[in-house]
């Protein structure tokens, strides 16, 4: 095991996959000479050169499209969006092209591509730079959506995403790049897509969290344990699509209570989908209505106090757990 930041774990995954498969290349804004806007690709251009690590013009639709075409023609591109906010410019290629290519070609053309970068809010970067877009992409059949919350998951899942034959939306979180965790040192360490992880075992209430809300949920769980002697289980689906609903349902069968914590807006969110699926599979096991903590239904404000009020927080999660546990 090595203690790594999420940033370095991602970097290792990229490096190992570049070495492992000559068709893997990384393309995006500032990924090469600048070492990445958030330094995820640090050192890779120096080590592997212009062919494998490619700086692009600011032309998201263009290089996403180039990636789709290259993937159809046999390469395995990893396309970095400086942030997922800018993927919206490229969403035509992701949704209209990559997601549907295999299906509408009757299985002829696979699109083995990864679109990755930070998703969600950062530190007061305001309305156009703070969006959590997982529900948007998860809505379209043909796309897989991955959101790691630890260094080990980041590495293992990114390697699987690169090896996957489908277009994968791989969402990181800027606030989390510096968080550290133990990562297995094996070169071939991968984590399969579509498998949830129980981040903390508990018996009284389940929190389903992803990305930035996982560390929040863990902190909330710890506080609740100490203050109220309530034991909280924290589940991280890790892959949003396909969703490992079985792990969530088994947990609910044990705890009978569910809180969902997510960074995206609430309307038509992944949390809404989980709520439906839980109702479908475990309605009779619920002892309380499901509670959900999301970002408020407003674009992200800049002001420090308003941004904090807009986002999920440990306190908000604690309040929700108390509500479903009737304490």
């Amino acid at each position: 095991m090595a203690l790594l930041t999420i940033r370095d774990a991602l970097n290792q995954a990229l490096r190992e996959e570049i070495i492992r498969d000559e068709n893997v290349f990384i393309m995006g804004e500032e990924v090469a000479e600048y070492d990445g806007a958030y330094k995820v690709t640090r050192g890779l251009w120096k080590e592997f050169g212009d062919k494998r690590v490619v700086d692009t013009p600011i032309t998201e639709l263009g290089f996403a499209a180039l990636g789709v075409g290259a993937a159809m023609a046999g390469l395995r591109p990893v396309i970095e969006f400086m942030t997922f906010n800018f993927s919206i410019l490229a969403s035509d290629q992701i949704i209209n092209h990559a997601a549907k290519m295999l299906y509408m070609s009757g299985g002829e053309f696979k699109v083995p591509i990864v679109f990755r970068g930070p998703n969600g809010s950062a530190f007061q970067v305001s309305s156009q730079h703070s969006q959590a877009l997982e529900a948007f992409y998860a809505n379209f059949p043909g796309l897989k959506v991955v959101m790691p919350s630890t260094a080990a998951d980041a590495k293992g899942l990114l390697k699987s995403a690169i090896r996957d034959d489908n277009p994968v939306i791989f969402m990181e979180q800027e606030r989390m790049y510096g968080m550290k965790g133990e990562v297995p040192e094996d070169d071939d360490f991968t984590i399969p897509l579509g498998v949830a992880d129980i981040k903390r075992e508990g018996k009284d209430c389940t929190i389903v969290a992803r990305s930035m809300t996982v560390p929040m949920a863990l902190e909330a769980a710890e506080k609740i344990q100490q203050e109220f002697d309530v034991s909280v289980e924290v589940i991280d689906p890790r892959t949003i699509k396909p969703l490992d609903i079985d792990t969530i349902v088994s947990s609910i069968k044990k705890t009978n209570r569910l809180v969902i914590a997510e960074e995206s807006h609430s309307f038509a969110s992944v949390g809404a989908e989980i709520t439906y699926q839980v109702m479908d599979h475990a309605f009779d096991h619920l002892d309380a209505p499901i509670k959900r903590i999301s970002t408020v239904e407003a674009p992200m404000p800049y002001a420090r106090n308003l941004e904090a009020a807009a986002l999920p927080s440990v306190d908000k999660i604690i309040a929700a757990v108390k509500e479903v546990c009737y304490i």
Binding site: N85, Q124, S126, Q128, P301, A303, R304, L306
Partner: peptide
């Protein structure tokens, strides 16, 4: 990011606006 800002602290550095002055903003994309 204060209330007295030209857009009440909601926009910040990148998003100054003023209808009165026909200033249609700072844009981040």
């Amino acid at each position: 990011g204060k209330e007295g800002g030209c857009v009440k602290g909601k926009g910040g550095s990148m998003h100054m606006f003023s209808k009165e002055h026909e200033f249609f903003g700072g844009h981040g994309i």
